[in-house]
């Protein structure tokens, strides 16, 4: 039995009938073909699938698409505007805040939520905010630097 849902994703409205068990991460990747949202651990630990739902960072592998009905969603694809990278994307590039890049979309979405609520976080606040995002390459050092740098640029 399909359930009708309507969601705004990166400013565009989408309506679909979805199976109730369809996870939001799969809806974004398989139905909308927005594959920038990665699925890592699939057990709500690693944070690779982090997106913003009504402005808040959530793990899209642990949410049903039907729960998102009526929500405004931002994925990594929605951050750049008019061909200009978002300050966080630019900063991850400049500070070399990634190696393999798999965790990067989730890192940047969590950082987006952090900076929206706390425009100039301390290093400790950044590290605390990233507790739910795992990077297995970098040791986090440059990720933290990239977020600090983006905060300075935005401020």
């Amino acid at each position: 039995m399909g359930i009708p849902i309507t969601v705004q994703v990166n400013g565009v409205s989408h309506s679909h009938e979805v199976e109730p068990r369809l996870l939001l991460a799969h809806y974004l990747r398989d139905v909308l073909r927005l594959t920038g949202t990665h699925i890592g651990c699939d057990t709500s630990s690693c944070g690779a699938c982090t997106i913003l739902v009504d402005g808040k960072a959530v793990k899209s592998c642990t949410m049903l698409a039907v729960q998102a009905d009526g929500a405004e969603i931002t994925t990594i694809e929605g951050l750049a505007s008019n061909g200009e990278l978002h300050p966080l994307q630019k900063s991850f590039n400049e500070e070399h805040g990634l190696q393999c890049g798999f965790c990067t979309p989730g890192m940047i979405m969590t950082a987006t939520d952090l900076l929206a609520n706390n425009p100039s976080p301390s290093e400790q606040e950044i590290r605390h905010a990233l507790e739910g995002n795992y990077c297995r390459c970098t040791g986090y050092h440059n990720i933290v630097k990239a977020i600090q740098n983006a905060a300075n640029t935005q401020g």
């Binding site: 944070g47 982090t50 960072a57 793990k59 642990t62 739910g132």
Partner: peptide, 9 residues
């Protein structure tokens, strides 16, 4: 509890 994303849901 958990992490930011878990606390948001």
């Amino acid at each position: 509890i958990g992490d930011v994303q878990v606390r948001n849901k």
